[in-house]
Design a protein around this nucleic acid. Structure first.
Lengths: 216, 216
DNA sequence: GTACAATTTAAACGATTGATTGAAACGTTT
DNA sequence: AAACGTTTCAATCAATCGTTTAAATTGTAC
């Protein structure tokens, strides 16, 4: 039945999650109605509440479904490059790659690119439960990479590294959230579909920024 | 009458704009109703449509009211530092200061800080008219600073400078959009109210990123 | 085939949305 | 004080919102 499973159309739950992801990325959470989601998914209106209970629970599911794999890959890559350099200092380039690599590369897949656009939006959706949800999704990742930066960049205070981490996240989130912005502003000079090109420029910028001395 | 003007309470239009700015920053555009705005402003519901015509027109007015002064100051500072270095190369630090200085410093004023939070949100609100509105608000600024970077950083291609400009905007927008994120993640180690501290860290990170060599 | 659970369906609930109306209240000018 | 244009007011419009209900349908085990 595995072949049939692969060929048969996706579950109602999956159709709802995919449609919600697409519409949330385009119109935001408040700007997307459950009716629009179920219509886009081609399922009945009540199916959404039957499978997820509420719109808020659907939002949480849409986000956690994609964040979890990215987090796993980030932490796995980070641990690998920390172990590899157990003797000396871990490579800053490897740490940066472990953080922005999984996110940028996933944006190659068109379906995942939609989610990246959604993630950029999420950071500014300061609704009632969103801050707590963001903390649940990213607190472990933030803490681990902050610790790694402390090892790789001795001489910087904890506070300085918090700021640097924040700027790295900002540069990445902004770029992934609005791929059309680059295309617009460069009038076609850049190819936003090429993840390796994005990574090349972003890693150069971020690693230099992380190493930058701060006036005391 | 100038003294009386200064002391008397703000116009209905101003009360609506201030309330809209506050609520838009907290709940987004789709998440804020005209009723909530007029209630927060303490004016009648119909006043909003009387003075602005529609919710969309109100959004445009809320944004343009604050962006215009920032744009003016940015372009003024940029022209000043380009003239000062008419002989040699303009200082990259001065260009960065001209771009992020006005935005960050305005976030000292509590009222303006609300708008900065709103601006961070705007970049990811990709509604129907928002991309065009963003282009109207920032296209001149983006073009001018891109040209300035071409002068200050010879040896980089146009494309590379587009990416660097993009990362700078991202690092800045993300930081200004979620001042509570820094506070949360640092558990009080940083004081987000101190604009000069933010500027110090951001300028160090951004200038280093701008100067970074990109692998060919 | 029958019984039982899981799922989908159409229809409707009260609440809230952006927008509109016409009359009342306002400030200014004559 | 009378007349005028501007602004505010309460009331209401059709439309849409998230959610709920109960019946119809499907899938599964006996």
């Amino acid at each position: 039945m595995t072949l049939a499973d692969a060929l048969q159309e996706p579950t109602t739950q999956e159709k709802i999650l995919d449609a919600a992801e697409r519409l949330f990325a385009d119109n935001g959470f408040a700007g997307t109605s459950v009716r629009a989601i179920t219509a886009e998914a081609g399922v009945n209106l009540a199916s959404a509440h039957y499978h997820f209970g509420s719109k808020e629970a659907l939002i949480r599911m849409v986000l956690s479904r994609r964040v979890e794999p990215i987090t796993q890959e980030r932490l796995h890559l980070l641990e690998a490059c920390l172990k590899e350099a157990s003797a000396g200092l871990p490579s800053l380039e490897a740490i940066v790659e472990a953080f922005i690599g999984p996110a940028v590369r996933l944006s190659l897949d068109p379906q995942r690119a939609i989610f990246m656009r959604l993630m950029g939006r999420v950071h500014s959706e300061a609704g009632d439960f969103m801050p707590q949800l963001l903390h649940e999704l990213f607190s472990v990742t933030a803490k681990r990479f902050h610790q790694a930066l402390q090892v790789a960049l001795p001489g910087f205070t904890e506070e300085e590294l918090f700021w640097k981490l924040n700027f790295m996240v900002g540069a990445m989130a902004f770029t992934l959230a609005a791929p059309q912005a680059i295309e617009k502003v460069t009038r076609g000079h850049c190819d936003p579909a090429d993840a390796e090109t994005v990574l090349k420029h972003m890693k150069a910028f971020v690693t230099a920024g992380l190493r930058a001395e701060v006036a005391r």
